[in-house]
Amino acid sequence: MRNLHRRELLATSAFILFGSTFARAGIIQGSLPWAPGAGAPPIRVLPGPWHFFTPAEGRAVEALVDRMIPPDPETPGGRDAGCAVFIDRQLAGPYGRSEGLYVSGPFRTGTKQQGAQSPLTPAMQYRKALAEIDAYCKATYGGRTFADVEDSEKDKIIGALETGELKLSGVDPKVFFTTLLKNTREGFFGDPIYGGNRDMVAWKMIGFPGARYDYSDWIDRHNERYPHPPIGITGAPSWSPR
């Protein structure tokens, strides 16, 4: 075919963003194409150094997620729940690169109804916005970074991102806020396997049993609190290595 670019095809015709296998064209005849161990289980995020963030960016994001979801006496905040670790690993992976999305130009500004049109990947968005936020803080608060200003100031800054009042060069503050809020919630409420929701603190907070797969005995027990603690894809907190 005239316009066929072989490299692009290889990159786009068989996406698997989570597993480790690579799909190739195949012929199936006579029996189901099933082999033991052929699945694509998710890869567990391990704690440790940042994969994407610089140390300064990591501090800023930990401070941001801990104001977006602040700690309270019963439930840890975004930082201790691992939201920044979750975001870091996502930005270092396919999500951060907009892998699988349509990224061909031309890029034009459309209406709200036409959806997001930015050429920036999430990783680029974070890199630019975090630098801008720290630069703003240093200029405004006597050389202090976002992580070092008072909580009340942090809240004002996040509020100004949400309304778009805090202008950032090269990145739309509202778009960044929306991305950050979405990612923070994903980290907080997603399975702990991705690095957030540490020890299933978010699920315990609301009473969500997580990856349990059978409520047959509970479907007709109405208006009764489900008594069992949550489990995740990799098990329960008590099973986790410390």
Partner: peptide, 12 residues
Amino acid sequence: TDYPPSYAPDEY
């Protein structure tokens, strides 16, 4: 292979 109960319940 694609959504066994061991990891099918994964909202993210």
